[in-house]
Design a protein around this nucleic acid. Structure first.
Length: 426
RNA sequence: GGAGAAGUGGCAGAGCUGGUUUAAUGCACUGGUCUUGAAAACCAGCGUACGGGAAACCGUACCGGGGGUUCGAAUCCCUCCUUCUCCGCCA
């Protein structure tokens, strides 16, 4: 969440940010409410503290009286303390309500967008940051969508997934399963080569973790929840990997934190049905390699550029046509200051599929995580970033469609070492 | 899952018959004295959060989390979590 000190100091900027996110003037008033409540909170706290100071002093005096055998003189003081405690109790109740209300409001304020983020309300307002320079492949009318190709070559089976689990849980098999494995290994090897340390994190996380990266309370309905154990299935590796740093204070200059991890991702995607979610376009479980960085505020945007270059290189090597979008305020994630989406062109469906999202959260997550770094004697919130590199299901969809031919599906050269040297799936 | 033990500041570790504990002591760390330099020795400092203050500094809270008893809780009670030992189960 935003720092209260920032809301106080840069009130106008915070409000402008909400406007970029398409908030109404009325909604934006929440900022003023927060400041009022914080004042209230401080007042109450000061009052409570000074009363407690008195009770502490009286208690000490009582102790001294007892030790010097003047028990009867303590009675009056005891009464004073009892009265004060009664008052404190009342004030603490008020304070609790104020703090709770304040926190809820704070949680409801999204990150302030970077100045580069265009205003806008829907995905149609996203800015094309880098378009595909070439012409898009035209496979003609005979081109098959990936779900048909999957049947032809026995790559994945959605009906079996339905039988075993339900809609949206694909079962990969044969060359399709191997292709998943190949892509995961390719992505991990590339991340490792770029200096990211590989981690295999837990796939279920507790509430603190889900809150730390901002999935809670904003996206509660998006996650699978295990009530019996009070755990959430991760919607992305971002959650367990970023939470590695929850509560940390990094030593001076210690910004070598580049992590990558493969995990399955689980998303409820409630209410998303219809033709546009066919096949692998939108599923409840998919595989993804994520890259995560913790950076000094002065260098986080340089890191973001590196991450964009990293993801671009992956897609270049897979020979998939793609474009990069800079998300507009209305489409920007709640916790993000700026997000670039990568979309690949899926030639049979003739549509762009989002395969990566690379974001700088600046201090929004680190404030919730209490992730700081030391600089001299002071401590400051670090910047956190992450990006998909890459999400598999839609990459597979595009790969199958774009690479189909009479000889089967051509395997991109960079994947062949992972596919037993084969050039085609057939 | 069952039985038992334990969780104290960066680490180790006392306190746990409730009130000189503002959490002892050691190590680590920082500054200083000494030294050509270093080590050793000695001296001093050394946690986090919130609030007040220009600052020095002051106040409050924190001894796994939450709640309770009491004028007063690291210390007593309840509850949850975690770790360790033994047993059971198991990839």
């Amino acid at each position: 969440m935003l720092e209260i000190s920032v809301i106080r100091r840069d009130t106008d900027r915070v409000k402008r940010g909400l406007k970029v996110r398409n908030w109404s003037e009325e909604q934006i008033q929440v900022v003023d409410q927060v400041l009022e409540l914080d004042d209230k909170r401080k007042h109450l706290q000061a009052e409570i503290d000074s009363m407690k100071e008195s009770t502490n002093k009286y208690s000490k005096e009582i102790g001294d009286l007892f030790k010097s055998g003047k028990q009867n003189e303590a009675a009056g003081l005891k009464q004073k303390v009892a009265d004060l405690k009664e008052q404190v109790k009342g004030l603490e109740e008020s304070s609790k309500i104020v703090v709770e209300t304040l926190n809820n409001l704070m949680y409801s304020i999204p990150n302030t967008p970077n100045d580069l983020v265009p205003a806008g309300s829907t995905e149609d307002d996203n800015e094309v940051y880098r378009d595909w320079p070439g012409t898009l492949p035209d496979l003609g009318e005979d081109a098959k969508p990936h779900w048909e190709l999957a049947k032809t070559y026995n790559l994945f089976d959605l009906e079996l997934g339905v039988k075993i689990s339900g809609a949206g849980f694909p079962l990969y098999r044969g060359q399709g399963a191997k292709l998943q494995r190949a892509l995961i290994n390719f992505f991990l090897d590339r991340a490792e080569a770029a200096g990211y340390e590989e981690v295999i994190p837990p796939h279920l996380v507790n509430e603190d973790s889900a809150r730390g990266t901002g999935q809670l309370p904003d996206k509660e309905g998006q996650m699978y929840y295990m009530e019996k154990d009070d755990l959430y299935l991760i919607p992305t590796a971002e959650v367990p990997v970023t939470n590695i740093f929850r509560g940390d204070i990094l030593p001076e200059g210690d910004f070598s934190h580049k992590l990558c991890g493969y995990t399955p991702c689980f998303r409820r995607e409630a209410g998303s049905y219809g033709a546009h979610v066919r096949g692998l376009n939108r599923v409840h479980q998919f595989d993804k390699v994520e890259i995560v960085r913790v950076e000094h505020p002065d260098r986080s945007y340089a890191a973001l550029d590196e991450m964009l270059a990293h993801v671009s290189a992956l897609l270049d090597d897979l020979k998939l046509p793609y474009r990069i979008l800079r998300l507009c305020g209305g489409d920007l994630g709640f916790t993000s200051a700026i997000t670039y989406d990568f979309e690949v062109y899926s030639a049979a469906q003739k549509r762009w599929l989002e395969v990566s999202s690379v974001s700088n959260f600046e201090t929004y997550q680190s404030n919730r995580l209490k992730l700081r770094y030391k600089e001299g004697k002071s401590k400051h919130l670090a910047h956190t970033l992450n990006g998909s590199a890459l999400a598999l299901a839609r990459i597979v969809a595009a790969l199958l469609e774009n690479n189909q031919s009479g000889e089967g599906i051509e395997i991109p050269e960079v994947l062949r070492p992972y596919m037993g040297g084969k050039t085609h799936i057939n």
